[in-house]
């Protein structure tokens, strides 16, 4: 696993047109970014197209990464989520699709398991663990599946406004925990 500094260096060299750095960046980060695409888009071919778009954007816009902003992995994840969610919403799935979709929270480790994982993941996992399971699940669903308020409300069977109130309260608690 490349360190944050190493990844930052790779991005910086991409901005200079260094192809070897681009290859190294892909090697170091593509599994995580592909996982994000796949989770949001669910179809492999869609996820592959999205990942291609992500790396082309990174290659061409590497200079837009500002050191001192988010960590390089957070920046790459943000670019990836945004592109994947754009694709997801451009497809405009019927609102009831979520009913047939796999469980929002069933996949992946529980917050407790996440907390066991090394590094920063422990922090967000532990903080989500402080929320009620449904509410933590909604945050994960929004982040990992790119679920909208409408979809989350449908999934949890609550009115849209209630969903929003829940989620906003969860975010405030989460932020407080993350800063502790």
């Amino acid at each position: 696993m490349a360190t944050s500094e190493e990844i930052e260096g790779m991005i910086a060299r991409c901005a200079l047109g260094d192809r070897a750095a681009f290859a190294a960046l892909y090697q170091a980060t593509s599994s995580k970014l592909f996982g994000i695409c796949l989770r949001i888009l669910r179809e492999r071919s869609e996820a592959e197209d999205a990942l291609q778009e992500v790396y082309l954007r990174v290659w061409r816009k590497a200079e837009s990464y500002v050191a001192g902003g988010p960590s390089p992995m957070a920046w790459l994840s943000t670019v990836t989520r945004n592109l994947a969610i754009d694709r997801l919403r451009a497809k405009a799935p019927p609102a009831d699709e979520l009913e047939d979709a796999p469980e929002l929270v069933a996949k992946g480790p529980t917050p407790e398991q996440s907390a066991v994982a090394a590094g920063e993941a422990a922090r967000i996992g532990a903080c989500l663990g402080e929320l009620e399971p449904d509410r933590a699940g909604a945050v994960r669903g929004a982040y990992l599946e790119g679920a909208s308020y409408t979809e989350l409300a449908g999934h949890y069977g609550v009115p849209l406004n209630t969903m929003r109130t829940w989620l906003r309260r969860s975010l405030i608690k989460l932020k407080e925990c993350l800063e502790r």
């Binding site: 995580k32 996982g35 994000i36 989770r39 994840s77 989520r81 994982a117 993941a121 990992l144």
Partner: peptide, 9 residues
């Protein structure tokens, strides 16, 4: 962002 650590593929 570390939420995505669990979805690597």
């Amino acid at each position: 962002s570390s939420l995505a650590d669990e979805v690597e593929e």
